[in-house]
């Protein structure tokens, strides 16, 4: 039902002539319009897993994605969350050229994830990049703050399941996300499970590793 709603929302978002990108159903409800739009920027500070989930939708649908300025980007985790590694390009340490590298990648890749350095970008640089995105119909995901973002998805915290004091392992997590669209804040919670059950006796012998299931976000009370 929720997936259906997300699809309806994605279709409705075409009203202003904006193209939408295939979006992972787990994060679709967090986004205004229910889908990633091309030609704009989104900010997702606080959680790399959330950024990977945002990348996963377009990547699984066949798009090339680029990651700029994140040296610790865990490609294996990205693959588990649905990012296709054979269409993933990493520029871990662009240094001072991060903005021009991002712009060059946005020329050819439909989705680029970037983490700006601490000093960030000046308003004029941001505006230039925004016009490039509009021209090229590329989507920018920023793992940090970004002025002029279509929406800011801030991971404010969360909880872990499956781990005790001296036993268990990290098996599932709940991520609290605050979506800010033009000063309007909504809260959601995303649940990610690994589906890995090593202690169930009836489990198959080969360790099957399904990709983490992100249950559709639910609206949490303010």
């Amino acid at each position: 039902m929720a997936a259906l709603q997300a699809r309806i929302a994605a279709m409705q978002a075409r009203t202003l002539g904006a193209r939408t990108l295939p979006t992972d159903p787990a994060v679709a409800p967090l986004l205004p319009g229910g889908a990633l739009r091309s030609g704009v920027a989104y900010a997702a500070p606080g959680s790399l897993a959330l950024a990977m989930l945002l990348l996963a939708g377009p990547s699984a649908a066949g798009a090339w994605v680029g990651v700029v300025g994140i040296p610790e980007f865990g490609a294996e985790a990205a693959a588990e969350l649905g990012v296709a590694l054979d269409r993933l390009v990493l520029v871990p340490s662009p240094g001072e050229h991060w903005l021009s590298v991002t712009a060059q990648l946005a020329e050819v890749l439909p989705v680029v994830l970037v983490r700006p350095p601490a000093r960030g970008a000046s308003p004029s640089e941001t505006a230039r990049l925004a016009s490039r995105l509009r021209q090229r119909d590329a989507t920018l995901l920023v793992a940090g703050e970004w002025s002029g973002a279509e929406a800011t998805l801030t991971a404010t915290g969360g909880s872990w399941a499956g781990i005790g004091t001296g036993w268990g392992y990290l098996a599932a997590r709940e991520l609290d996300v605050v979506t800010t669209v033009r000063e309007v804040r909504t809260r959601h919670r995303v649940r990610i499970e690994t589906g890995f059950r090593p202690f169930v006796p009836a489990a198959p012998a080969a360790p099957v590793r399904p990709r983490p299931v992100a249950v559709p976000a639910m609206e949490a009370a303010e």
Partner: peptide, 16 residues
Amino acid sequence: PWPGRLPGFVPTAVLG
């Protein structure tokens, strides 16, 4: 199979 690798979540940030 790589026995000894960790089950559950794969870490998203690998600190080299």
